[in-house]
Structure formats: structure tokens, C-alpha cells
Amino acid sequence: MTALIEVIRGIGRRVVDGVWRMGVATRFFLLTLLYSGQGFRRFHLIVREIYSSGVLSLIIILVSGLFVGMVLALQGYETLQTYGSEEALGVLVSLSLVRELGPVVAALLFASRAGSAITAEIGLMRATEQIAAMEMMAVNPIARVVAPRFWGAVISMPFLAALFSAMGIFGGYLVGVVLIGVDEGSFWSQMQAAVDFREDILNGVIKSVVFGVAVTAIALFEGYDAPPTAEGVSRATTRTVVTSSLAILGLDFVLTAFMFRGV
């Protein structure tokens, strides 16, 4: 009996803790938005963050995009060949990339490359009392540290997703047209006939922006909330990658359900 009560109490405690943490995270996110104005006045800080989360993620994004596109073309060709419609390879590669793989895989890579870096950086700034020092100098750390990182990363994300998709389509072209020998004209023209700017490309961009906001908000909060010890920071970094990956996939389902319902 007491064991059962203990179990129920454990569940209750977890729920209360979880809800409380969600509340803290929401408040943190709202504060970040509130102080964004001050963040934008220090635009060079945003530029610096675009460098560390955008430019430094370029290599992994471009190389992964290329390979994902090449694999898509190889696999897609095998399947399409059975139905004798190899010309649709361009459609398959471009729609998969622009609608799903571009935003999702780029965001997953972004979470593990830039998100974890943000968490570790902010966690260490807390652990070494840099955040506290800033507060003691009457500088709001959310305006000075958090908001510029938030906007820098959110601006980088759609560019990275677009580069991933473009690179993937190029990879698909390399394998499909150059290597396998699918007709170049029908590769591009079928692609252009099937891919709509608003329905596919713009929705893909919207997805990547949403993912960017989610990943960055999670990374910043985990870093800010991390216990100021080496162990605390490393656990927070892991949690950032896990939580934001789950958030990306969950949000992707919701967004896809809304965006491509009628098609």
C-alpha cells in the first residue's frame, strides 16, 4: 500500500516538476522576445551569432545535403524504374527535399551542431559566473547574451535548410542525370511542373523557421537552466539534442498535417 502511494507520489512529483519547468521555460522564452529589441540594437552580436551557428554549420549541412540527395536519387531511381517512370526522379528528389528532408534533416543537424554549442556556451558562462558578473554590471544577460543568440540562430536556420535542399537537388542531379543518365530535360521540367513555390518551397521555409525557433529556444533554456557544474552542463547539452530532435519531428508532423492536407 505504502509502495503504491510512493509510486503515485513519484508520478505526481514528476508532473508538477515538469509543468513548473515548462512554465519557467515559457517565461524565459517570453523574456527573450521582450528583450529582442535591445538585442537588435546590438546588431553586431547577431552577426557574430550568425557566424557561429550559421557559417560554422555550413560544412556539415552542405556535405550531408549532397549525400542525402545522391542517396535519394539512387534509391528513387531503383523504385521508379520498376514503373518505367525514371523521368519523375527530379520530382521525387526535389519534393522530398523541399518539403521534408531539407527542413527536418537540416534542423536535426543544426540541433546537434549549433544547438549543443549554444547550450554548452551559456552553461559555461553561468558556471564561470560570467552571467552573474553581467548582472552585477547592470547588464541584462537576456538582452545581451540570450536574445542575440536567439535571433542569430533563427535567421541562420532557413538559409541552412535552403542550402541543404539546393545541395541535395544538386546531388540528385549528379547521380540521376550525370551518373545514371536520366534525361536532363525531363528531370528539370517535371520537377518544375510539380514543385510549387508557395505550396512546397515557402512551406518548407516556414517549417525551417519554426524548427529554428524551437531548437534555439530549447538550447538557450537548457544552457541557462543548467546546474553550474561540468556535469550539469554536459547533461544539459545532451538534453538539448534529445529534446530538440523530438520537438523537430513532432512539430514536423503537426506542420505537415496542416500544410499538405489538401494535396
Binding site: S94, V98, F159, A166, M191, D196, I201
Partner: peptide
């Protein structure tokens, strides 16, 4: 490069 990628998607891949 990011803007170029978006333009590439819009003009070459999409039908804009």
C-alpha cells in the same frame, strides 16, 4: 549563399 539557394529553389526547382 542562403539567398542564392532560396532563389535556386524558387526559379530552377519550383515554378515561380
Amino acid at each position: 549563399a542562403g539567398i542564392a539557394a532560396v532563389l535556386f529553389l524558387a526559379l530552377k526547382v519550383g515554378n515561380m
